[in-house]
Amino acid sequence: MSTAASTALQTLQTELEISLAEAIQNSTIAFKELTIEILPVDLLRVAKTLRDKHSFEILIDLCGVDYLTYGKSEWDSDVSSFSRGVTRKNDGLFDFDKSSATVEYDGKRYAVVTHLLSIKNNNRLRLKVFCEDNDMPTVDSLDSIWNGVNWFEREAFDLYGILFSNHPDLRRILTDYGFVGHPFRKDFPLEGQVEMRYDEQSERVIYEPVSIESRVAVPRVIRPSEKAESKASEAKD
């Protein structure tokens, strides 16, 4: 990207800081993209301003993010020796019989991330909202501002259990009829809870607890990037 484009991004950042001043919790430019973080209470007002004053006509994408295991690795890369196999820790996470609310997590767990596009000004913006309540994450629906968001919000509800107040039709969208749980939450196992098969004796399709065991072929490992390392060593010197 040229320098002209990056100055355009900075101009947008200052413009937003002026028009939305108190609403913006945090605004950053990273990877040549502008992200602003706001509180759920301000969402509708900010969205309206962004659409009408800053001409973000299109809502490109809306998705949920679950920050439950953010920054946790399965393999400690600092110790000198480690075992080869890794079994996924059960951590007492989501259990089919219990509600997922038993998971302890301090801090706000769910975020709703919206990507906006302005055709008039040819720029993009990422809008981030952290839900206040981890047990019942709720934000306002953007349906009245951008009609196209309807299904994106249904998807975020289906996969993460994030509730959108005043949504016209908040139903599950991607999972099966009668599905239990929110599959993209980090405490939902990758292999799922139940498996389905045809039972010859009862002559119908039955659901049973999954029989496959989860196996981690490549452990998740966090290594600081070389750039970050060199920066840290510079700071030490």
Binding site: I60, V65, D66, S73, H115, R223, P224
Partner: peptide, 15 residues
């Protein structure tokens, strides 16, 4: 068509 990647510094995408 777009991809939104959240990374926490690991060798797999966080989201």
């Amino acid at each position: 068509f777009g991809c939104y990647i959240v990374s926490d510094g690991a060798n797999k995408p966080y989201r």
